[in-house]
């Protein structure tokens, strides 16, 4: 807790990878970070096993230690 405040960062598991985010990051920031500016059309997000609707991305703060999944459609049977 003290360390995190000192570095002003929080750590989440984003698509299976430990990822540092600025303290106070919201789901919308995670999406921008993961997509590196590519359109988020067709993307969905779950935080700790619960879907966060697109309309709530910018209002949902990310907690330290969260598990975040960011998915989209790909080819499949």
């Amino acid at each position: 807790m003290t360390d995190r405040t000192a570095t002003n960062n929080l750590t989440v598991t984003l698509n299976g990878v430990a990822t540092e985010l600025p303290h106070g990051a919201h789901v919308s920031d995670v999406v921008v970070h993961a997509l590196k500016g590519v359109s988020s059309s067709g993307v969905a997000v779950a935080v700790d096993g619960v879907v966060v609707p697109r309309s709530s991305w910018s209002a949902t703060a990310v907690a330290h230690g969260s598990t975040i999944e960011l998915v989209t459609a790909t080819q499949g049977g």
Binding site: N15, G16, A34, L35, V38, G42, V43, A44, E69, L70, V71, T72, A73, T74, Q75, G76, G77
Partner: peptide, 13 residues
């Protein structure tokens, strides 16, 4: 279509 993590896929399908 299938659903996969964004980093692993081509999104334009």
């Amino acid at each position: 279509v299938a659903l996969r993590r964004v980093s692993a896929v081509d999104q334009s399908i």
